[in-house]
Nucleic acid binder design. Structure first.
Length: 684
RNA sequence: CGCGGAGUAGAGCAGUGGUAGCUCGUCAGGCUCAUAACCUGAAGGUCGCAGGUUCGAUCCCUGCCUCCGCAACCA
């Protein structure tokens, strides 16, 4: 397969929140590694990205926060763009779907298909809110479930009984956002008849792209086997790109129709701005010598492999994706990453907490990339990979080589004398690194490729350990020089090999080596640094990350988890009906805590001494785990049941039961009175 | 319900119809130039469960279990 240029796209992040490590691991780091790799090889390549700013969720968010939709997308577009820049995600252009170029382009794209009869028009009855003048999506309609009759079932599914529903089945449907009741209104939309592309897609994907990753291929096969149906490409909304057809007021292009067109319009924006550098946008999208690669997450497979190619095919003048490397998902500390639950490591926050450590996150996310299945990100793994791999293996090797050179050769590259058999054996181990890396990178195996690069540092450490130049320096300075020369050549190789993965560190290393140029072709060579070349100032390539920094992150997550638990809490169901007579049998009293301490050898029991106004009593209560400092209860007036029969626990007699509330986190909270009352006062 | 992906050493992950691998962690030894880093070696697995095909299955087939996605502000 030969090609002249490569067009790389990264999934457009939705401008409804900051980006997090899942986005980075799933899409942007692999895309960036691949882009940097091709650039390093001197190939023609552009990397196109941008924010997806249409669709319903941004409008909901704006309404919730009382700001305009434009303000929402501006805020997050800028935040996202800034995060990408700081992490070195090297886009040639990062634009947005609200740009005027995109609006015009997407509009023209639609119109062109429309004029060529590529759409079918269908009229359906849909639920409508007369007050807000809007049609509702299935998910925003709620009502009574027709099967289990629970309230609040969604238009697509009942949470209670799990049945799949359609909005028509709901009893008394209402708007989930404002509670308004709904009426039915007919509306017409344009559909892309995917069924007409079925046969063509089957041949194109199932026969001609068997090399796609199993998850991608399998997902496509599943959709194709199920039979494709026409898919709506317009929506009744006021936020988006107006449908460029007479009489289509109030309708916009469906966000999934306009977003991928953003890849094209952003390319156009780039090329129009710098035609001398990038040429014509059509070259990137219509010349069969261009190779198109989409980097996406697994939730986007169907749109990039089925829908968008069908759109391009419908137009007829575009090339199609050559590969769609899709990653699975990254979890965080065992739980699914979630924007709404704030369960994420946000890039903007990471940059504040770990300034200058972008490469550490890049390294960890690549080392543990979810290439074949969902993976887990943990902070302890993050720390371990930094301290044990980046610092101990890579950084340490560089430091050893430089310190030794400074010590014995005043920071000048010594001459490479006669090579011993062991030298040759070592060279043999990494001379093929270029081919190995290329094989892995060409096939999108970034995790393995990075491991291969790290292996070079291991080879370096081993070489120093075996040859022991610090000993030889006393007897044979010439041999010492050869060893250090070779070590420095390995260091120079490392800066090239890691360039796609850890661009900031590679630049830093080149500065330390005063190595001005980096060429992929030189990878594997042992004469990158010339004899007597003067090295720059040595500094540490990576720094250790202390436990305290990791603990701070874990504490933050624990706090969020607790907040979520409280937010998600629902009151338990009311018990069976009882009577006032039953209640009256309980003699509930107020008493003041005189003493409170843990019962020895018990995990759960606290021993209370209570002033009950009748000479005092001892009560045991199983709440020790909720009160690590029991003395804080001393002096409080609490409620207790006074007429339970005494009961021995852990050898102590308990004369009653203290009343506690069970909180959302299952912690028990002792009940008390709002004003001071006499001890022994009755409650009823 | 269905469809797709996944389940392999304490942790995180590769891999293959024929002796099960990598990184980290653990343990032992070596080294001391280096950010107490580095090097060598060892221990540690009925490859989710149950059947089947095969001379032989972790791999292929069937069934089941669990997790994730398709499908709620998600890459």
């Amino acid at each position: 397969m030969s090609y002249k240029r490569t067009l790389i796209t990264s999934a457009l992040p939705y401008a409804n929140g900051p980006v997090h490590i899942g986005h980075l691991a799933g899409v942007y780091i692999p895309a960036d590694i691949y882009t940097r790799y091709l650039r390093l090889k001197g190939e023609k390549v552009i990397h196109v990205g941008g924010s997806d700013e249409h669709g319903v969720p941004v409008t909901i968010r704006a309404r919730k926060e009382g700001i305009t939709v434009q303000q929402v997308v501006d805020r997050y577009h800028n935040l996202i763009k800034d995060s990408f820049e700081k992490f070195g995600i090297s886009f040639d252009i990062y634009s947005r779907t609200t740009s005027s170029i995109h609006h015009k382009f997407a509009s023209d794209f639609f119109r062109h298909l429309y004029d060529n009869n590529k759409f079918i028009e269908q009229t359906t009855e849909q639920f409508y809110d007369e007050e807000t003048n809007e049609f509702l999506t299935d998910r925003n309609i709620r009502g009574e479930c027709p099967y289990c009759h629970s309230q609040g079932a969604y238009g697509d599914q009942c949470e209670k009984c799990g049945r799949t529903l359609s909005p028509d089945e709901l009893i008394n449907p209402y708007n989930a956002i404002n509670g308004n009741s709904l009426t039915k209104k007919s509306t017409s939309h344009w559909y892309l008849p995917l069924d007409q592309y079925q046969e063509w897609l089957q041949k194109w994907i199932l026969e001609e792209h068997k090399e796609w990753r199993p998850n991608v291929y399998g997902q496509c096969k599943s959709w194709l086997d199920g039979g494709l149906k026409p898919r709506a490409v317009t929506r009744d909304l006021d936020w988006g790109i107006p449908v460029p057809v007479e009489g289509a007021e109030g309708k916009v292009l469906y966000v999934w129709f306009d977003a991928p067109i953003g890849y094209i319009s952003n390319t156009k924006e780039l090329c129009d701005a710098q035609p001398e550098k990038y040429g014509k946008w059509e070259t990137w999208w219509k010349d069969p010598d261009t190779r198109l690669i989409h980097f996406i997450g697994k939730d986007n497979i169907v749109f990039h492999c089925i829908v968008f190619p069908s759109m391009l095919k419908a137009d007829g003048s575009y090339i199609l994706p050559d590969n769609v490397p899709s990653n699975e998902f990254l979890n965080l500390e065992g739980d699914k990453i979630s924007t709404s639950r704030n369960w994420a490591v946000w890039l903007n926050e990471y940059l504040e907490d770990f300034p200058g450590k972008q490469d550490v996150l890049r390294y960890v996310l690549t080392a543990n990339a979810p290439e074949t299945k969902d993976n887990d990100f943990t902070w302890s793994d993050f720390q371990a990979r930094n301290n044990n791999e980046l610092v101990a293996i890579y950084g340490n090797f560089i430091n050893r080589a430089l310190v030794l050179t400074n010590k014995y050769f005043n920071g000048q590259v010594p001459a490479q004398g006669t090579l011993t058999d062991y030298d040759k054996q070592t060279i043999e181990e990494f001379v093929n690194i270029k081919t190995q890396l290329e094989d892995l990178l060409n096939n999108f195996h970034f995790r393995d490729a990075q491991k291969e690069a790290m292996n070079l540092a291991r080879i370096g450490n081993k070489y120093l350990a075996e040859t022991e130049p610090w000993k030889l320096a006393k007897t044979d300075l010439q041999r010492t020089g050869t060893i250090l020369n070779l070590s420095l050549q390995i260091a120079a190789n490392l800066s090239i090999a890691f360039e796609p993965f850890l661009p900031f560190s590679s630049a830093k290393l080149r500065k330390m080596l005063l190595m001005d140029d980096v060429k992929w072709d030189r990878l594997g060579a042992i004469d990158i640094l010339p004899q007597e070349h003067t090295l720059g100032t040595a500094e540490l390539l990576f720094e250790k990350i202390e436990d305290a920094a990791i603990q701070a992150q874990l504490d933050r997550l624990a706090r969020i988890k607790k907040e979520n638990q409280l937010a998600a809490w629902q009151a338990p169901e009311i018990k069976k009906p009882t009577t006032i007579d039953e209640f009256d049998k309980m003699d509930i009293r107020v008493g003041t805590v005189l003493e409170c301490q843990k019962v020895k050898k018990s995990d759960k029991l606290l021993q209370f001494k209570i002033d009950d106004g009748m000479g005092g009593r001892t009560i045991l209560s199983g709440i020790a785990q909720s009160y690590p400092n029991p003395e804080e209860l001393v002096g409080k007036q609490i409620l207790f049941i006074a007429n339970f029969p005494p009961r021995k626990m852990m050898g102590i007699e308990s004369q009653g039961m203290i009343l506690s509330a069970v909180n959302a986190d299952n912690k028990l909270v002792v009940t008390t009175v709002s004003n001071k009352v006499q001890n022994g006062a009755q409650v009823g």
